[in-house]
């Protein structure tokens, strides 16, 4: 299975360190507006939601690119923009249903998460609560399922 950034929203504290570390590594500046991962804070609802590119198996951004600048690497599974081929037409930006690829004014290119190209993703390395992990297995999903299972178990009577 493919290694992906796995997100456990229950562990997030809304510190936006992921946005800071991502932008610092990839742009040289602490600029959340240019981060490739997004941490949104909803205080009254007590919810913190973190989202980033899911490296789709059949990426809409890839399909839509008229210059074939976007490709999915078969070995790593990472969907990457080739800056040499990208002409900045923003078709991919329209195509991605999740808003996870964007156009950057200063470079004139499309920009998205590439899982830090083989290094440990910087957001994972800096996340203070291990809300973010890089894993083949979707452990947060299994934990969520197990919470449900345990609730069912506790409600089960012996017959």
């Amino acid at each position: 299975m493919q290694k992906l950034i796995r997100i456990d929203p229950a562990k997030c504290v809304g510190c936006k360190t992921c946005e800071l570390s991502c932008s610092f590594k990839n742009t040289g500046e602490f600029a959340p507006s240019r981060s490739r991962i997004y941490n949104e804070v909803f205080i009254e609802e007590a919810k913190f939601i973190t989202v980033t590119c899911m490296q789709c198996d059949e990426p809409w951004c890839e399909k839509s690119c008229p210059k074939n600048a976007i490709s999915k690497d078969m070995a790593s599974g990472v969907v990457t923009v080739d800056d040499v081929k990208c002409v900045g037409c923003r078709t991919c930006v329209s195509a991605c249903p999740f808003g996870m690829i964007k156009y950057v004014d200063s470079t004139g290119k499309a920009d998205k998460c590439n899982l830090c190209a083989g290094d440990t993703p910087e957001c994972v390395a800096f996340c203070p609560t291990q809300c973010l992990t890089l894993d083949e297995e979707d452990k947060p999903l299994r934990q969520k399922m197990l919470r449900f299972v345990n609730a069912m178990k506790d409600g089960q009577m012996e017959v």
Partner: peptide, 11 residues
């Protein structure tokens, strides 16, 4: 929930 401020890991 516990909550942090911007860029702080203490929460």
């Amino acid at each position: 929930r516990v909550k942090s401020c911007m860029g702080c890991i203490i929460s």
